[in-house]
Design a protein around this nucleic acid. Structure first.
Length: 893
RNA sequence: GGGCGGAUAGCUCAGGUGGGAGAGCGGCGGCCUUACAAGCCGUAGGUCACAGGUUCGAGCCCUGUUCCGCCUACCA
């Protein structure tokens, strides 16, 4: 049905009444659905899956808004768009949440056992897993929800298994005993990336290690005295003369009875500390390496719970690692072995999930051999199969890939993808297999035990671009939409996620996972601080949405999303853009007061200058907005259209068109104004829809001549007849001149303190025939916007007395001041203007008097400077002329 | 230790390839003008961090300095 005059609009836009309605409408009408097969150009994005435990924060809001802009924009441009949504199972985080719940019920995962625990997690996920998804929906996210995926889904789990087995068979996954980062609270290994380093105030302890025989032993410096219980050597540099006498000798490890050797290794830095380094292979990655080279034993003195082990000795066994440090230090003091303690600032690793101090610990884990995978992933970016935007992130990507270390992928938790590896209890054979094995292929035993560990969540996230599309099956979806068009993400997970997807995509699909990676900024608070619960500076998007509406939030984020710069957000800014939404609403309200049925095509024969100007501007803006989005310049697109809607359409066009709309200028002009305002509103809504989907959909349905959802509209640049829109530089120039004339008169009104209500008489003097007719033809327009009773046009000549003056180009504008003109005020006004011009003129003169400039600068630049100079001088002369007149008149008074 | 980014109006920020700086908010003055006071009209604010250099010409290019961020690193 084509809408006739629909209904009257409220005075102010009320988002809360509108948003839920349209979201439901879009979903019900399947407007977000991608077709697996279509003749349209495919465009695809996979969502960065939020944690199931997650709560929507501003980072998500920005991320989702930008993706939604791209998806809605591409749909409007006629593409077949797939936005693949889903969540990830967030192994450690989710397990933590469920464990906390169990603790509230006075039980624990160990008490209820693994099977029941995993069931409890699934229960939790069924109950609460949709929370973040619903929040994404309230942001307006136009994901294809029927395809929603979860990293623990059957299909994705199959992909994980297949990848694990194939990498293992290719020698790219191995298991081994290495130093890893252990979180004693989460009770699991962490990958290097999952450790956050922070500078902390600590101490450095100087400990005397006595020789077994007579003579002075070395002083060893350490920040972690409790680990000395696990020392298996002291190392010195082979060239260090201070310690030559120690080569080949042994020391007694204080607080224990153990003898440990003094070894030499050039790893030791002679200039640091005392030059003697204690070696603890089980609790320090470097010491581990040195231990391997020198075939030293490893003594694990700290256990998985962060408490000292049996090996730490009777006295220390069972002590918490921090408590143990205090005891060890005290004991060293008591034995006279502690030489001194110094303050020391050093960086310490913390678990990225729970902030607990991580403990480097020796442990048997699974690793991905990343180097070969990284090589392909680097190549793909080098030759631009994948483009990273903004480009500066390329270097970070390359650097990280070049320094990449093997990736520890096993986690000692229960919630996650089980590792498809079994050990034969009888012969010890390790079996890695896609299908669960029944018997040992080596000895035929049926006693097989599956590895109890699960895989790092990021291991499954790394497969997201293809696992969500059905891989390992060769689906139509994959065929249509892989590689995806663009990945939109924050730089904080460039390595965690993007780099790993690149590795897995290149390896398993022989094709990059995405053509573009758009890396956006972080959202910070108004002081530039990272928003965090602990600092209490979090702006909750849901609260903002409730208060200002989703569109306001989205438009704010877009308008501030300049490439490569963080967004500092404050409510004040959101309020400003809420006002913009309301402005748009009211522009529609005014338009729809007059446009009550769909006007036909645009007929320029009865149009006015403002009409032609507006259409010309519309065309330019539509192209610019599209161009900006294509280049991921969301802020430019948003600002371009903001400026256009508010300061051109509303401030100038609608104001100029009012008399025409009210029929004061006759049928023809009225028709033209109706058509143009309809057209501008119509096209503007489409341009704005990707940014502010709700209000645009609402107005769309109120706009006569539209049918169905705005999501089905054709983008202005693609619409039939777009090319016919006038690109009219003459109209733009003429309109610009008239605007200046109007501004000149308004300035007089403002500066001379003339009440807006009183209408004025004005005279324009010029010898230019073109300008004379321009003013004549647009007398009504100027009079209306400048609030004039009369406007007369004359050739240049004597300026009337008792008038205030404005100069525009060659036009001398005189405003008759009823009653007594305030000469002092007008003098002041003119002097100010003259002084301003003087500055410009001096600057130009300096240039034009410079021979170097005249001989070396390009001709067009010189020409521009000359004409500008002439213009300013002429204008100034006229102003001076008028100033003189004012002065002479005022003297007679 | 290495790397990257930033410093522009009171505040927050824009300023493709160098031709004399813009917006929003805030300030000030005036308006309830029949779409909007979440508004309208007018207006004032800047040696573009500092010091050099290249150039006829630098916010933009080069060098150095200062002050902030961020990333990264195994110096005990």
């Amino acid at each position: 049905m084509v809408n006739e005059s629909k209904k009257t609009m409220k005075k102010g836009y009320a988002p809360e009444e509108v948003e839920a309605k349209w979201y439901a409408y879009w979903e019900q009408n399947k407007l977000f659905a991608a077709s697996e097969q279509s003749g349209q150009k495919p465009f695809s994005i996979v969502i960065p899956p939020p944690n199931v435990t997650g709560v929507l924060h501003m980072g998500h809001s920005l991320n989702i808004t930008l993706q939604d802009i791209l998806c809605r924009y591409r749909r409007l441009r006629g593409d077949n768009v797939l936005w693949m949504p889903g969540t990830d199972h967030a192994g450690i985080a989710t397990q933590n949440v469920v464990e906390k719940n169990l603790a509230l019920q006075d039980t624990s995962r160990h008490q209820i056992g693994r099977r029941k625990f995993v069931e409890a997690v699934w229960d939790w996920r069924r109950k609460y897993g949709d929370a973040i998804i619903n929040q994404l929906k309230s942001l307006g996210a136009s994901c294809d929800w029927d395809r929603e995926r979860f990293t623990m889904d059957e299909g994705l789990s199959r992909a994980v298994r297949k990848v694990f087995v194939e990498l293992y068979e290719a020698g790219l996954i191995y298991r081994g005993n290495y130093i890893i980062n252990w979180c004693p609270r989460c009770q699991t290994a962490l990958a290097e990336l999952e450790v956050e380093h922070e500078e902390e105030n600590g101490h450095i302890y100087y400990v005397h290690y006595p020789l077994t025989e007579a003579g002075d032993g070395p002083i060893v410096a350490t920040t972690r005295p409790e680990t000395m219980l696990g020392d298996t050597a002291v190392a010195v540099h082979p060239e260090d003369d201070r310690f030559r006498h120690l080569h080949g000798r042994s020391v007694v490890l204080p607080l224990t009875e153990r003898e440990i050797p003094v070894i030499t290794d050039s790893y030791v830095d002679i200039s640091f500390g005392t030059g003697a380094l204690k070696i603890t292979p089980a609790h320090d990655p470097n010491d581990f390496e040195i231990g391997k080279i020198h075939e030293l034993p490893s003594v694990r003195v700290i256990g998985e719970d962060g408490c000292m082990t049996e090996a730490a000795g009777e006295k220390y066994r069972g002590l918490d690692r921090f408590e143990c440090r205090r005891v060890v230090v005290q004991d060293l003091k008591d034995n006279g072995l502690l030489q001194k303690i110094e303050d020391y600032r050093h960086s310490v690793g913390h678990c990225y999930r729970c902030q607990t101090l991580v403990e480097p610990n020796l442990s048997k884990q699974w690793f991905v051999k990343t180097r070969p995978l990284a090589e392909q992933a680097v190549k793909a970016v080098e030759n631009s199969e994948t483009k990273i935007v903004p480009e500066k992130w390329r270097n970070d990507y390359f650097k990280w890939m070049e320094d990449i270390r093997d990736w520890c992928i096993s986690r000692q938790i229960w919630w996650g993808h089980p590792i498809p590896a079994w050990t034969c209890a009888d012969c010890g054979k390790l079996i890695v297999s896609f299908e669960d094995p029944k018997t040992c292929p080596a000895c035929g035993s049926g006693q097989l035990e599956q590895d109890p560990d699960v895989l790092d969540t990021w291991f499954s996230s790394a497969l997201w671009p293809f696992s969500t599309m059905g891989w390992p099956d060769q689906t139509r979806l994959l065929e249509t939409f892989y590689p995806t068009s663009v990945l939109v993400t924050g730089f904080d997970i460039l390595f965690f996620w993007v780099a790993r997807m690149m590795m897995m995509g290149c390896h398993f699909m022989d094709e990059v996972p995405f053509r573009d990676v758009y890396v956006h900024a972080l959202v910070r608070d108004e002081n530039g601080k990272k928003m965090s619960k602990s600092s209490g500076n979090v702006i909750d998007p849901m609260v903002i949405i409730e208060k200002y509406g989703t569109d306001a939030l989205r438009f704010t984020l877009s308008a501030f999303a300049a490439q490569g710069r963080d967004i500092k957000l404050s409510e004040k800014r959101i309020e400003g853009y809420r006002n913009f939404i309301n402005k748009l609403w009211n522009a529609a309200r005014l338009t729809l007061m007059h446009v009550t049925q769909a006007p036909g095509g645009i007929d320029l024969s009865t149009s006015g200058l403002a009409d032609r100007w507006m259409l010309s501007r519309l065309k330019t803006v539509a192209n610019r907005v599209a161009e900006a989005i294509d280049g991921y310049h969301f802020n430019i697109a948003a600002n371009e259209i903001y400026q256009f809607v508010w300061h051109e359409f509303c401030d100038w066009y609608l104001e100029a068109a009012k008399p025409a709309l009210y029929g004061k200028w006759g049928e023809g002009r009225q028709q033209a104004a109706l058509k143009v305002s309809w057209r501008v509103l119509h096209d503007t809504l489409i341009l704005l829809h990707p940014f502010i989907p709700f209000v645009t959909e609402e107005i769309w349905h109120l706009l006569p001549g539209t049918e169905g959802s705005i999501m089905k509209a054709v983008y202005p640049s693609d619409a039939a007849g777009f090319d016919q829109l006038p690109n009219d530089p003459a109209a733009e120039a003429d309109m610009a001149l008239l605007m200046e004339v109007i501004n000149g008169i308004r300035n007089i009104r403002g500066e001379m303190n003339i009440p807006p209500a009183s209408n004025l008489d004005a005279l324009v003097q010029t010898d230019s025939a073109r300008h004379q007719s321009l003013i004549k033809n647009n007398k009504a327009l100027v009079s209306n916007l400048a609030r004039l009773d009369s406007l007369s046009i004359e050739p240049a000549g004597e300026k009337p007395k008792a008038t205030a003056t404005a100069i525009v180009d060659d036009l001398v504008i005189s405003v008759y001041l009823k009653g007594v003109i305030d000469f002092a005020r007008e003098t002041q006004r003119l002097e100010k203007e003259i002084a301003k011009l003087d500055k410009e003129i001096q600057a130009l003169l300096k240039k034009l008097e410079n021979d170097d400039f005249l001989s070396k600068a390009p001709a067009d630049v010189i020409e521009k400077a000359r004409s500008q100079y002439d213009e300013y001088v002429e204008k100034q002369e006229k102003l001076v002329n008028n100033l003189d007149k004012i002065k002479s008149i005022s003297e007679y008074q």
